[in-house]
Amino acid sequence: MLPATVLAFDIETVPDVDGARRLLDLEGLDDRAVGEILFTRRRQATGSDFLPHHLQRVVAIAAVLRHEGQVRVWALGGPEAGEAELIRRFFDGIERYAPVLVSWNGSGFDLPVLHYRALVHGVQAPRYWDTGEDDQSFRWNNYLSRYHQRHTDLMDVLGAYQARAGAPLDEVAVLLGLPGKMGMRGGDVWGAWLAGEIGAIRDYCETDALNTYLVYLRFELLRGRLDPAGYEAECERVARALAADGRPHLAAFLRRWRGGAG
């Protein structure tokens, strides 16, 4: 049986150009130029242009929520929502539902980024940070401890907590017969952001959250919390939700996954 409430999530980020202007005295340069300076400095320092967590700005957070037998897929806030609002909505959802959080590499990327950005914006999240001081049950199962299950980082768990055993979500999803990446990849987000394509970024983020949730269902089958019939029922629940939603990117996800089953 699944937990009462499950929230699978994913974030998309771009360089924090405003922060970089303050840190590196880059006032007067446009966003594209500041971003290129950040990428260049990072490549020179590490050989990779993957920016450190505290210099990432959150531009989309997508969620798949299973609650009271219903499944919902959406990107938090509206396309015009600022970073602070997105992060506040994410942690408000935890405050309201106390869900089991599900991610792919959330411990390594998504949550540390959200920590830093919540700090920048002064976003409060008391339930998320509770380790038993307010709720004794959180002492033994909280969001912060690596080996607790209130946050299930699927990449970490399936890789037996070994960094060298980590795998890309896209590849694991495809191996399971899921759509994997659709529309873009993580490296495309900065260019899409500069082009004003926030809608495409949000759609992409939603499909990544969907892949994550469906891998989670297979994981729950793997460890026996779902039997085969229960697993199929949960997949059908997701398929019905996608069919009822009707948005083109979710309809495309459904077709690729289930051949249009609804």
Rank of each mutant, 00 (worst) to 15 (best):
Leu86Glu: 03
Arg218Ala: 09
Arg247Phe: 02
Glu206Ser: 03
Tyr128Ser: 08
Tyr116Ile: 00
Leu222Asp: 05
Asp153Trp: 07
Met184Val: 00
Ala75Met: 05
Gln162Ile: 05
Leu29Phe: 07
Pro112Thr: 13
Val113Ile: 08
Ala75Asn: 15
Ala209Pro: 06
Thr5Ala: 15
Phe39Ile: 00
Leu144Val: 02
Val172Trp: 08
Val123Ile: 15
Gly77Ile: 04
Ala33Glu: 14
Arg43His: 02
Ala160Leu: 15
Ala62Asp: 07
Val100Met: 14
His151Trp: 09
Cys205Ala: 04
Asp25Trp: 02
Gly19Ile: 10
Cys205Asn: 09
Trp129His: 15
Asp208Pro: 02
Gly69Thr: 00
Val17Gly: 01
Leu101Tyr: 03
Phe91Thr: 08
Arg57Pro: 00
Phe91Glu: 13
Thr212Trp: 00
Gln44Gly: 06
Asn211Val: 03
Gly196Tyr: 14
Ile201Thr: 11
Asn105Lys: 06
Tyr213Gln: 06
Arg139Gly: 03
Gly187Ala: 13
Tyr116Met: 13
Trp104Asp: 00
Ala75Arg: 07
His148Lys: 14
Asp92Cys: 04
Ile198Val: 14
Gly260Met: 03
Thr131Cys: 12
Ile37Ala: 07
Arg255Gly: 00
Gln70Trp: 09
Gly191Ile: 09
Ala195Pro: 06
Met182Ile: 11
Asp31Thr: 10
Thr40Ile: 00
Ala125Trp: 11
Thr46Phe: 02
Trp257Val: 01
Val189Cys: 13
Ala241Phe: 01
Asp208Gly: 00
Asp203Ile: 01
Leu221Ala: 14
Met182Pro: 01
Val157Tyr: 14
Asn142Trp: 11
Gly260Val: 00
Gly166Tyr: 14
Ile61Thr: 03
Pro15Val: 11
Leu38Glu: 07
His151Arg: 06
Leu2Trp: 13
Gln44Tyr: 03
Pro126Ala: 09
Arg127Ala: 08
Asp245Tyr: 01
Phe138Asn: 06
Ala252Thr: 07
Gly82Arg: 10
Gln70Cys: 11
Thr5Asp: 15
Leu222Gln: 12
Leu144Tyr: 02
Val189Glu: 13
Gly199Pro: 01
Pro179Lys: 02
Gly47Phe: 03
Leu55Glu: 12
Ala8Pro: 11
Phe219Asn: 03
Asp156Tyr: 10
Pro79Trp: 09
Ala241Trp: 02
Phe219Thr: 01
Asn211Lys: 02
Tyr97Ile: 03
Val113Glu: 00
Leu144Cys: 04
Ala98Tyr: 05
Gly132Trp: 06
Glu12His: 05
Ala84Val: 12
Val64Tyr: 02
Val174Thr: 05
Thr131Ala: 10
Asp30Asn: 15
Ala125Arg: 14
Leu51Ile: 04
